[in-house]
């Protein structure tokens, strides 16, 4: 599963399913944030621009924005997170996914890292 994921330098991951992209944060990111206590999700139907904040992850004393790596329309949000924000900590790459965005045109994932590249990147951080 995680072999299909592509990572950004902002520690987000993307899973491309046709023109829909599922987005979450990496294990490294959830660990840095600490206990996630609330996930502020967008509404289905919202349009987002690349680089724009689409969700916010809150720990007790910090807020971290999740930026959209693509432009498009929000087609699904992980409603489980409303009651169980800890899923982002417990299963960041799977059950802790955050949103799905339907991209305008073709998803550009060329400059993203695969799992091995991302792990190498983390060693440099």
């Amino acid at each position: 599963m995680s072999e299909q994921l592509r990572f950004t330098k902002e520690h987000e991951w993307l899973l491309v399913k046709g023109d829909v992209i599922r987005i979450g944060i990496s294990d490294y990111a959830q660990n840095e944030l600490g206990d996630i206590v609330f996930v502020d999700l967008p509404s289905v139907g919202d349009t987002v621009e690349e680089g724009e904040g689409i969700a916010a992850l809150e720990s007790v004393k910090a807020v971290s924005d999740v930026y959209s790596p693509v432009s498009g329309e929000v087609v699904a949000v992980n409603e489980e997170l409303e009651d169980s924000p800890e899923l982002v900590n417990e299963s960041p790459l799977d059950q802790g996914w955050i949103v799905e965005i339907k991209v305008d045109g073709v998803a550009q994932t060329g400059d993203l890292m695969n799992k091995q590249e991302y792990e190498a990147f983390l060693k440099e951080v």
């Binding site: 206990d35 206590v37 609330f38 809150e58 720990s59 007790v60 004393k61 924000p85 800890e86």
Partner: peptide
């Protein structure tokens, strides 16, 4: 005190 629990 468990602040995460209070906020979740």
């Amino acid at each position: 005190l468990d602040e995460s629990r209070a906020a979740r």
